[in-house]
Design a protein around this nucleic acid. Sequence first.
DNA 1: TCATGATAGTCAAGAATGTGAGTAATCAAG
DNA 2: CTTGATTACTCACATTCTTGACTATCATGA
Lengths: 189, 189
Amino acid sequence: MALRHAVLAALLDEELSGYQLAKSFDLGVANFWYAQPQQLYTELTRLEKDALITGREVVQDTRPNKRLFRVTDAGLAELERFTATATKPSFIRDDLAVKVQAADYVDTETLIAQLTERAAFARAKTDLFGRLLHTMRGERTEAEFLRHGTRIGPYLTCLRGLTFEQGNHDWCEHTIAILRDRQATQARH
Amino acid sequence: MALRHAVLAALLDEELSGYQLAKSFDLGVANFWYAQPQQLYTELTRLEKDALITGREVVQDTRPNKRLFRVTDAGLAELERFTATATKPSFIRDDLAVKVQAADYVDTETLIAQLTERAAFARAKTDLFGRLLHTMRGERTEAEFLRHGTRIGPYLTCLRGLTFEQGNHDWCEHTIAILRDRQATQARH
DNA sequence: TCATGATAGTCAAGAATGTGAGTAATCAAG
DNA sequence: CTTGATTACTCACATTCTTGACTATCATGA
């Protein structure tokens, strides 16, 4: 009862195929939810069966045929209903945080390597989100767009994704600095 | 293969019962992972079977007896091994973000109510994390503690939790302001 | 020409997670 | 003296998620 609404929300703006949807979920463009491609195909099938979305076959010459989905009125109503239900607290599951939690018991170099990798990943995402935001607002300033734009939902969630990834990046860099500093301090004894 | 390491990492500092562990996971003190109580009991049983933790029965007069668990050497080795494996990207699943994504299609007042609730929740968590950080560092400054403290893992993850919840709070407030502003703008037509 | 990689999926099995109920004792408040 | 909250769990079912394997076609580069 959770992925369904994420998929519905993602299909509000454009007709997408399962494959395209999978891309955006997998790459984290839909930064408010995480899902694997296979889940999306399954969910799309279910959503169509429940008439919350409709699919249409698009025949392609150079590519395999695909099915594009869009939200139906029933789907919109379902989203409306969902919005009115109690919101569960957001949850994070992060392997890296588990590793940092154990920082004093595990190899520092290994940990720093993981943090470095995550920092780079987070940087890539902030760049991506920055570009996405720019594309969405076009020539307008952010304030202008948010005040008068016709579709601000994706912009707002992308803003959250941006600061989240900035937070990840800064935290990784900070943690690396701390660990390095302690290494240096301890080496002197 | 994921919850197990989170549990191991949480048990590094103190012997805990399943119930205590459940509390800390549920309240988000272990802010790097989210899990329900029942999952933890199951996982503790499994971890003990695999000899990564050991439990001891504590007989209590006024309360039901409990079992306290601590990490074994094999458990430490497992954490070490885990740290060296590739880190999966952190994932977020947030009902509220899904609702905001659909902002232009759902009732604004309903959405604002949810955002207000989340903002309050996030504020409560930042307060909690702030107190936890203070408890951990004691009389020392943060820089002092992070440089010379003996156990900094939980402090570092708590720092991430703090900025994450601050981010949530600010985003909620900002989003509310935007939505209110648009309401006012549109009311004029 | 051969191997990748991208597009566009499907299927099935098994692991992980979530939900709800049930047990049982003590303590504090009304 | 009864209700509700807290401590301390256990069991079982259902749903969800993950993993891996599989099918195709076309485009690109070596």
